[in-house]
Design a protein around this nucleic acid. Structure first.
Lengths: 147, 147
DNA sequence: TATTTTCGCTTGATTAATCAAGTGATACTT
DNA sequence: AAGTATCACTTGATTAATCAAGCGAAAATA
């Protein structure tokens, strides 16, 4: 049995890096009392607000149930408000939410970037972005192979 | 405030892809009654057996506690055995474990590969592997920036 | 030889995500 | 207008991971 293909090696690397850098980022964001997932959600809200929970869930790759609890936590911390508009709840950042994003965002973007900028040049980063984007987009339309 | 840098865009893509493809893989592996994490662990054991829990935990980016429970589950399912050798527990695949790996591995490797092979040519895959490997290795020695 | 330290692993408490059933308001349908 | 379906969201049950305290055997130290 062949132990691995090029593709499977890439996959492993990607998942390991993703996992590791995610933990790294969580550690980093402790200084702002945020998790990576929460930061991600706050940014999406900032960029796309006002939006519904469904839209948000889709954007951050989490289930409806997941986003519901997550937002409940963020609301308890007063980072966001949910308002019943018509039959939908629209989500907005509060003052406090805006402030924490404003504070954490430059640092977090710098951290994210540094994973790549530390070791790749502009050209390589362009290439990597283009490749991974193609792979990601394809994965979204992919279907599970039949048994 | 700048919304994002090239690096942060790559990061987001990577994490989204990682998350999505991981769920995809979980869905796929249901036909073997395995999760992605379990498959990962079984493969590592197959390749490196016999090995200790610490070594294994390191390989699959999980904590000691995590691996302990995970192996307890795999042992209950009779995929592995843990034997107290001297003061360490060494882990091996059972017959059943060997069999499931033998059965699931080709399918899972094909799935992993297809994420890339479907959209990239050999040359591009080589490039992607090289880039992500550099990034990953760097991330392992990286330290959290001071406050 | 007695005592302390270290090592490899386990386990209780906590956190967070999934799934699937439930809820309540709105929109169709007859 | 009454009944049914749909939509957006919540919530109970389950699963799995982390952290940190605990444990027992072996090693080091006094």
């Amino acid at each position: 049995m062949r132990n691995n293909t090029r593709g499977s090696l890439i996959w492993l690397r990607l998942l390991r890096f993703s996992n590791h850098s995610n933990q790294f980022s969580n550690e980093f964001l402790k200084r702002f009392d945020l998790t990576t997932a929460q930061f991600d959600v706050l940014i999406q809200i900032k960029v796309y607000q006002p939006l519904t929970q469904m839209e948000l869930a889709e954007k951050v790759t989490v289930t409806q149930g997941g986003i519901s609890r997550m937002l409940a936590r963020l609301e308890k911390e007063k980072y966001i408000v949910r308002k019943q508009d018509w039959k939908t709840k629209t989500i907005r950042l509060t003052e406090k939410g805006e402030a924490i994003v404003e504070k954490a965002m430059p640092a977090q973007l710098a951290l994210q970037s540094s994973f790549f900028e530390d070791v790749l040049n502009e050209e390589e980063m362009k290439t990597l972005y283009s490749l991974i984007t193609r792979v990601h987009k394809h994965s979204l339309i992919k279907e599970i192979p039949p048994e």
